[in-house]
Amino acid sequence: MEFKLKIWRQKNARSQGAFVEYFISGVSKEMSFLEMLDYLNKTLIESGDNPVAFEHDCREGICGSCSLYINGRPHGPDDLIATCELRMTKFKSGDTIIVEPWRAKSFPVLRDLIVDRYAFDKIMQAGGFISVNSGAAPEANSIPVSREVADEAFDAAICIGCGACVAACKNSSAMLFVAAKVSQLALLPQGKPEAEKRARAMVAKMDELGFGSCSNTGACEAECPKGISLAHIARLNREFLLAVFKT
């Protein structure tokens, strides 16, 4: 297979980036998209160029490092996957493939396709936890949690923090990310005592860090590698509004 690649190249956070075109041939259909980029990088290095910088680590869709915006879609033209799970069989030989970094004010580009997502950590620091010290926990089975609730909490908890929701959103909103954590911890009895405080703090931090507001378009849900439901955003809204109106 062969492709024309238009890849965003940017030296560092301060410099201006631009698309650079590459032609690549000899791509096998068994490659993953990232292996295709590895292959491109090999040829770039051997010909004296700088390789394309992109983030990746576990390469099995769970660490959330990979973050490429491919042909207009976060994580490329397939559903329920991270970029590392995208296979070249999703493309036709001869295609032009446009590869961009996540673009958002809160995710500044550091180099080529690498962006800084530390804003997500800052949102978590605002309240994405249950305040229990090590050793202070009660016996695990002392608080039964119905299976339905545990499963729903799990469905929110599987967020990998990749940022595809922000990239997918026309407003660069981080609502799905925030909602996943708020919802998970609000559902579980352990997280209830701090639920309202948590919702307020995390939303305030999200706003402060320059993420946009939610338009409920559903693009985030559709592009989320883990298929986290918009219902969690509704729960976040509810938690937040309850918190506000109670005080």
Binding site: G72, I98, K105, T217, A222
Partner: peptide, 24 residues
């Protein structure tokens, strides 16, 4: 204000499969 949350726009955006036209 949302317009300013993404100073550098994506070169190509494909929302067709992910959200309805009215919502966008």
């Amino acid at each position: 204000t949302n317009q300013f949350k993404r100073p550098q726009k994506f070169a190509k955006v494909d929302h067709r499969q992910t959200s309805s036209w009215p919502s966008q």
